[in-house]
Amino acid sequence: MMIKNVMLIDDNKIDVYVSQKVIEKYDPNVKTRAFNNAVLALSFFKLLEANNNIKSLSLPEIILLDVNMPEMNGFNFFKEFKELKVIKDHKIAVYMLSSSICPDDIIKAQKETHCSGYIIKPLTLEKLKKFIHEPEDTEHPQQFKKII
């Protein structure tokens, strides 16, 4: 899979920084766009929907989504995310990135149809490579990739 754009949604600046550095190490050409708030990220998508010209250029292939955030947490993000029109013709893989190893969170993520995987913080090069390069399960495209 060719990665050009990654969106980071996390209220913790340090974690965003770590993730950006790891992605940079993976491929310096990958652009990252960070939002410290899930609501802002959603409005970014809505803005793209309204403006057709720049859509293909700026849509991320991957979203790394923090779970515990103020205002709108990771799980609530999905409720609005699945209503977006852009996801119908552009495949966007959303991975949850969290420090929580609470099984309840992992099970909840597993049940979420638009969630592609659950990554336990901190993000490392190995983890990143693993979920980008793991061959896609063609039979079960929705299969969950849990990465620890």
């Binding site: 913790n12 340090i14 974690d15 920084y17 770590v18 993730s19 550095k21 790891v22 190490k25 515990n68 420090s99 929580s100 609470c102 913080k121 901190p122 993000l123 490392t124």
Partner: peptide
Amino acid sequence: AHDLKAPLTSAEGLLLLLKD
């Protein structure tokens, strides 16, 4: 316990960057 872990994880991430 959960919230206290978050800064530890952040530090761990920074530490991994430092190792490189």
